[in-house]
Nucleic acid binder design. Structure first.
Length: 203
DNA sequence: TAGTGCCT
DNA sequence: ACAC
């Protein structure tokens, strides 16, 4: 376990291979019910390169008209998000150190050429709760800065099975994904990377 | 500005 | 990493 200068915790290889494979199975079922969709930037409608879906009572979504928000249903199917698997509730219980359970699990799928710009997770009402991130599949170059966009940044590699906890000082740290490293994992047969982000939304 | 580009 |  490594704690970075900005308070972010990195747990390399926290999930073993069988646990990773089990999560992929669960995600396959979720995606069958709540298909990955292409989010849009607020205002411009520019598509993001990452595709998304969610599980849990709430899901993070964005589109041209309404922008970033949490809502209880899939934007395309209008159906409620699939339930949060017990395995993820357990992970939150073990690593989150927070009294209330997570309400949203954002599932991000990165193709090998997808990226995500530097941003803050700040659409939650409960900013005391940590954000838990699970990496599956190909490795990525993860970038982390400070509380201001202008703050200097550093980067490190995230591999399949790694968990990152953004809590305390690091809860509102700017972060993003610079690049995916193709062919660095055999977990996902068709390549790419999956990131699970567990969040508490309502205080 | 949860993005894009690298003759930056 | 940085500017836009």
């Amino acid at each position: 376990m490594a704690t970075l200068a900005n308070g972010i915790r990195h747990l390399p290889g926290y999930l073993d291979r069988p646990a990773q494979e089990h999560l992929v199975e669960l995600i396959r079922d979720i995606v069958a019910e709540a298909p990955l969709y292409t989010p849009e930037m607020p205002g411009t409608g520019k598509p993001m390169s990452v595709r998304m879906t969610n599980c849990g009572p709430l899901g993070w979504v964005t589109d041209k008209q309404q922008g970033y928000r949490y809502q209880s249903y899939h934007p395309a199917t209008k159906k409620p998000w699939p339930a949060m698997p017990q395995e993820l509730l357990d992970l939150w219980e073990t690593l989150g150190g927070y009294s209330k359970p997570p309400e949203a699990c954002l599932i991000n799928f990165y193709s090998d050429d997808a990226k995500m710009g530097l941003h803050q997770d700040r659409d939650e009402n409960d900013l005391a709760a940590p954000v838990l991130s699970v990496s599956l599949g190909n490795s990525c170059l993860f970038r982390v800065g400070g509380l201001s966009r202008k703050d200097p940044t550093g980067s490190f590699r995230l591999s399949s099975g790694d968990v990152v906890v953004l809590g305390g000082e690091g809860r509102l740290a700017f972060h993003g994904v610079d690049r995916i490293y193709p062919g660095t994992s055999t977990l996902l047969k068709n390549g790419g990377r999956i990131n699970l982000t567990l969040r508490r939304v309502n205080s």
